[in-house]
Structure formats: structure tokens, C-alpha cells
Simulated assay, not measured.
Amino acid sequence: MNRTDCGDEIDESRYAVTRGVFAIPILHDHSPDVGHSAEGMTIEIGRDSIVFELATRTRPATSKWLLGIETENGELEFTTVVSRYVSQSGLGLRISAAFVSPDDDPLADDNLTPTLDPQDLTFHTKLSRVVLNKWVALGVLQPRLVDRVLVCRGCGSLPTFRRGCRNCGSIEVKSQRMIHHFACAHVDHVACFGHTAELACPKCLATKLVVGADFEYLDGPLLCLECQWSDTELLTIARCGSCGDECALNQTVEKEMVEYRVNRLELLDLVAAN
């Protein structure tokens, strides 16, 4: 195996690397073409390309492949390539292929992580769940739960949350001001103490009450200005940012956020081990 003056850094040279390989053609919808997958061996590897042979003579319709290359501990590390030259060999097919960039890799991290779509306010991965499950079934992808979020019960979009009236849901709610008279411990609405400058207790009839000395103001029950409902607590209400549906917090739907991981090929480690 040739090396350059750069030590272990791979240059344009090619390296003879013989490892078991499992090749899966990738269809145009990014799903695996299991029927045309095949086993074989790697022949040589460069910084940007790889040559491998497969025990099959059937050429798939696609030029993009996912290669699972066996490591020293027997595990498979995966990389995506696109074939440039395909020829017949004693084993079956000899394929010269180039490693693809992350932008052209269907199994790049950006395609496997759920994100929020600003158009419909839903969380989803760029690859469909159907396609992802096919790769999971092959053992290529490993799902991992990363979060749980509350979404609209109707359309699954992301809602906003606010506090409102427990009866009608209105946000037009205010606290009713109360007075606590220290001397007799009476607590009542401010209006019950009179509307003049000289407040009087409706219980003990004391007059000329002075705030701080004779009484204190308290926040009393909540009053809805729309339906006149009175209560001591507000309700957390979800409003869908897409369809506009409103419901109580406990009526929303919990959705699992699942990302997918792939055991990626470390090219430097592979070459250094040979």
C-alpha cells in the first residue's frame, strides 16, 4: 500500500484494500433495491473513489449504491457511491465508483433528522417514513427517540399555547380585586366597601378605612369579560397554527420525534488498517 509524505493522510493514490462488502442499489425514491443487492469484495480505495466486485451479473437500473464495508471487528460501515464504470469480472461485476457528497447522499444526516416545515408547521424527515423503515429493516438505519412534542389533534401541525377562560376559552380575563379588612378579617369585592373616597366595611361597619393600616388589596377570582364566567384558575388552550383548531392542552396529541443514524464508513481508519 503506497503512502505519501503526508503520513496517514490519503492523497490521490489508490490503496489495495480487500474487505467484504454488501452493496445495495438505491432507487430513485431513495429506497433500497433489495432484489438487486449483492455481496462481494473491495479491490482498492482512493480518497474519492472505490473499486469493488460483486457476485452478481445483473446490473440494476440505478447507478447509486449504498456499500456496507466490513470492519476488523466484523461490523459494517456504510457509505454511498455512484458507479462510473461497470464491467464483467470473474466474480460477476467489477464496479468503479465515486463517493458522493453529503448533498447527494440520500442517507445524509440532514435527511434523517425531523425538522419543522415552516409551510405547514409539521415535523417530518426529508425521507418518508416508508423509505426509512425499509432501511431500518435492513439494519442500515437505527431509529432513536430524541423528543416528544404536542401537536394539533386534527392536522398534526404545531400549535401555540395560551391561558384562557375555562368556560369559553377567551383570553379576555381579568382578576377581580378584593379587600381584606384587618380588624374583622372580612374579605369581599372592592365594590362592597363602597364607591366613595371613604371606604366602609360591610361586615363591621367600620368607616374611613386606610389602605395599609386598615386593609389590603388582594387578587380575587378571575372573571371572563366575554361569558362572565368566574373561576380561580385558567385553562391552558392550544391553538393550531395551521387549521386554527382550539382545544384544551390535554386534548392535543403527543408525537414522537425520531431521528435515524447510520454507522458511517471512516475512510482513514479503513485505509490505515490495511
Score class of each variant (00 low, 15 high):
158 L>N: 13
97 A>L: 03
62 T>P: 01
191 A>Y: 10
9 E>Q: 13
19 R>Q: 14
249 L>C: 09
18 T>K: 14
255 K>D: 01
35 G>L: 15
83 S>E: 10
267 L>R: 07
1 M>N: 03
46 G>R: 07
172 E>H: 15
87 S>N: 10
76 L>A: 03
32 P>C: 11
151 V>D: 11
74 G>P: 03
202 P>D: 07
96 S>C: 11
64 K>I: 01
21 V>E: 04
94 R>Y: 06
147 D>E: 12
217 Y>H: 08
43 I>L: 07
114 P>D: 12
153 R>P: 00
186 H>A: 04
266 E>T: 06
207 T>C: 05
97 A>R: 05
245 D>S: 07
52 F>T: 02
129 R>L: 14
152 C>S: 10
99 F>D: 01
151 V>I: 15
64 K>W: 01
213 A>M: 08
159 P>F: 14
93 L>V: 06
43 I>P: 00
223 L>H: 09
50 I>W: 01
267 L>C: 02
197 A>S: 15
131 V>Q: 05
200 A>V: 00
73 N>L: 03
221 P>T: 07
85 Y>I: 04
152 C>H: 09
44 E>G: 04
138 L>D: 03
119 Q>A: 09
150 L>T: 04
191 A>M: 06
266 E>A: 07
67 L>G: 03
216 E>V: 05
93 L>E: 07
143 P>W: 09
38 A>D: 02
49 S>R: 12
18 T>L: 06
247 C>K: 06
44 E>W: 02
53 E>V: 15
24 I>G: 03
180 H>M: 03
178 M>V: 14
115 T>C: 04
31 S>V: 06
240 C>Q: 05
